[in-house]
Design a protein around this nucleic acid. Structure first.
Lengths: 218, 218
DNA sequence: GAGACTTTTTATACATGTATAGAAAGTAGC
DNA sequence: GCTACTTTCTATACATGTATAAAAAGTCTC
């Protein structure tokens, strides 16, 4: 009989998460401070810390909620394993791309959130079907994860820089280029800004899949 | 004649950077706060902000100093372009791996630091020699950069988690696994921790190179 | 050399995440 | 009902990055 002892809780993890969603939804991600959240829940800031280890964990749980909303697509019937890996990776990245505060969370954990585990499952499964051992398939997933996390982080950082419209730091770099030692970069020059705005995620994923999975039997 | 007007500066960017190096060297990276740094330089915290936009920029400059210390290796004479790309990427990652606060800086910029531009130069040059257009070569560099940044971030996050010895959050995940929906992950189970500790950077880089560069003429 | 102007430095203040200590509010044993 | 114990919540405090306003310390014009 689980009769709880101690002072009965006034708030729950669920309350906190719901309030966090409300705040983010109505006032944006930057409004989500522990104090603001406490007000929304109707308690004090420190009370939150009895239900949540720290803000990172809170964000991780929000990410979990969010990722759970993205449904697992039906695996395309006759698709080659490589295509299944690509599809899963693209879906994973698509889910994360929409979360603006992702950049703060990615520092905190390297595995996808609890309810979004179908991404690794799918990637690992397809890799095994392609002929890899489970161990190798895990490597494939981790490599893809690293690539994806890096791409998203860079994307988010670039977006933030655009907001603050910092002078990009790169223009400065390209002005003081030593053309003798760095001819390729010097030749690219002004093009750089434009070239680095391109979305190369798919290209990278396909290259990884080509390089990691055995070629499909002809 | 550039006779400077206005109040003469008491401190310089150089002073600040030198002090920052001293602090980090003797007391570790966590001791580097703006107040501590100001004390070390002999000024007030806010005075630093006349020489440095914010702490991120300061860290970026420290990274620059650090990366400049890593010498550009002589390009191996007869090496295939692909091998040159791999070597440059591994060197780049090696240089970053040693910087413990890297994780805070990577959020701030996506291009390597000013004095470490030989990494992209080398990768782009080798890619062009392998037969790609300069535009494609830039893609190659960016894809490699994303992968590298992601790997380093994950590595740093894992290291920090080990310090705080948080219960890894993953054990919990694997305990509540729905084995019916996620058979591969369930089968891996306890192995996961061990498998994800492996260093797969090289494997990923080689796969990227295989997938991105045209096969060498036989 | 007196005021205008510019650059650098200082003082003060604020928002934020979170540590710490203790108060509040319940259950269990007697 | 009283004491012990447990859990949750509150109050207070601190370190941190940094905004803002004003003071200080020069040069330039006349």
């Amino acid at each position: 009989m689980p009769t709880r002892t101690g002072r009965p809780p006034r708030i729950s993890k669920t309350d906190i998460l719901a309030a966090a969603h409300r705040v983010i939804g109505s006032e944006g991600t930057q409004a989500l401070t522990m104090r603001r959240l406490a007000r929304e829940v109707g308690t004090t800031p420190m009370a939150l810390y009895h239900h949540v280890r720290d803000k990172d964990e809170l964000l991780l749980m929000l990410l979990d909620d969010y990722a759970a909303g993205v449904p697992r697509p039906e695996p395309p019937a006759g698709a080659a394993p490589g295509e299944r890996v690509v599809a899963a990776a693209v879906a994973m990245r698509g889910a994360l791309m929409g979360v603006p505060w992702i950049i703060e969370v990615l520092r905190a954990d390297d595995l996808m959130s609890v309810r979004a585990l179908w991404y690794p499952e799918e990637i690992i499964d397809a890799s095994v079907l392609a002929g890899l051992t489970p161990e190798e398939a895990v490597d494939v997933y981790r490599i893809i994860w690293h690539y994806t996390a890096g791409e998203i982080t860079a994307r988010a950082a670039a977006a933030r820089r655009r907001e603050d419209d910092r002078p990009t730091h790169r223009s400065e770099v390209f002005e003081n280029l030593d053309a003798a030692r760095l001819p390729r970069l010097a030749a690219l020059g002004a093009q750089w800004e434009e070239l680095t705005a391109r979305d190369t995620y798919d290209k990278g994923i396909r290259a990884l899949v080509r390089g990691l999975l055995p070629p499909p039997a002809a």
